[in-house]
């Protein structure tokens, strides 16, 4: 039950070699072992999107991936985004638009929104809404999140 395996990975640019329980999912490893509690656990079955984070350039559900699967991977969490400055305009737009309330969905919502913005998504509201449909937010009603993403896309287009 407590079988472990040693993995090497980079989390927010910091390398680690560490033994992890083979049954532990990635988000629990990040939170409990590395103390990176910015990624949140909402449903543990891949529906709510609160644990969305980046693995090797792709946004994944941290609850649906085992830590051992991240052997050799580059992982970026919400803390890493903040430290590197990546997505700073998106975070500022979330502040300006009040696109978060309790903040629990926010790390995952940011990750999904950043994925959309960085891949050149359009500022068409229905397209943004469709992209964010895998991220559950109980507080905002989503409108302010869509506003924030629109602002960033328009801002990046002008700069």
């Amino acid at each position: 039950m407590q079988e472990t395996r040693t993995i090497s990975l980079s989390v927010n640019g910091e390398p680690s070699t560490i033994a992890v329980p083979v049954r532990q999912n990635l988000v629990d490893f990040l939170r409990d072992t590395l103390g990176l509690t910015g990624s949140h656990v909402g449903c543990e079955h891949g529906v709510c999107g609160a644990c969305t984070l980046e693995v090797n350039g792709a946004m994944v559900r941290g609850c649906l991936m085992l830590a051992v699967q991240a052997d050799g991977a580059e992982v970026i969490t919400v803390e890493g985004l903040a430290d590197s400055g990546r997505g700073a305009d998106l975070r500022q737009a979330f502040i300006d638009r009040n696109a978060l309330q309790c903040g629990f969905c926010t790390p995952g919502m940011l990750a999904s929104a950043l994925e959309y913005v960085e891949r050149g998504g359009s500022s068409e509201r229905s397209a943004i809404r469709e992209h964010l449909s895998g991220n559950y937010c109980r507080c905002t009603g989503y409108q302010s999140v869509v506003d924030a993403v629109c602002d960033v896309i328009d801002g990046r287009a002008q700069s």
């Binding site: 990176l36 910015g38 803390e79 979330f94 978060l100």
Partner: peptide
């Protein structure tokens, strides 16, 4: 808000 956006909640 910034604290929550930086994963420091």
């Amino acid at each position: 808000a910034n604290r929550l956006l930086q994963g420091r909640g």
